[in-house]
Nucleic acid binder design. Sequence first.
DNA 1: TCCCAGGCTCTCT
DNA 2: AGAGAGCATGGG
Length: 272
Amino acid sequence: MEYIFCEDKIIIKKPFCLDLRRTLDCGQAFRWVKKGNRFCGIAGGRYAELEEVNGDIYIYGITKTDFDDFFKNYFDLERDYNYILKKISENEKIKSAVRYGKGIRILNQEPFEALISFIISQNNNIPRIKGIIERLCENFGTKTENGYAFPSAETLSSLSVEDLAVIRSGFRAKYIIDAAKRVTSGEINLENLRKLSYDNACRELMKIKGVGPKVADCVLLYGLGFINAFPKDVWIKRALDEYFGGKIPECAKEFGGIAQQYIFYYIRSAEG
DNA sequence: TCCCAGGCTCTCT
DNA sequence: AGAGAGCATGGG
């Protein structure tokens, strides 16, 4: 990837495989909002605006340090998608999904935000998930000049179910608080999970109330860098049965999370 | 109105 | 170990 650092923006020149809409609005992150031609949002406590211009990506509102320290990794720009997409395309069905959804990248989000976001996602629909998360940030996140940061575990751990009534998350409120408490107490150290095996990290996460296999996989994939994690929601389960004989194709296992994202996008929009 | 949502927990076999 | 009800809330 080639980067140009201007005074008012950072340019990613002709990036391979980075479609803003498909990446930011495909159900892996919930806080990016389209305003005009730009996607605006706060990630890692930093406000940014992104826009595609003639095949380049412009990023406004952040410093070079923000980019080097956070966004370069957030957008997974160091990963060789050329190799990975080729590899998972050894399966014909996945090849179709890749052709259809080209440009999706896995976002490396903050672990705690991923954890809470996907706890909220259970038995829920995407528009409502976004609403709940926005209310969570507005009520309990730190206000910056361009919006609210995602609340800290410390802040959420001090709340009661009644305090959380304002976000209207329903039965998930007790799960949010349980997660925040375990993280704050140190019982679960999210950063340390990166060093564990997939199985052990998964087991640790599922100690949290309201975290089962699917939510754990989402946290591992979107928050902790386990690119092999393959979240199985109702859509993916249907697709696995229908197209893949009930199991993940061998060629897609190493990069299961990326394959999953392309399959998810494909079956939800095209019904391939 | 009714059905269902990027599931999980709890209970009962 | 596997099946099924119930869960809070609201979008379509």
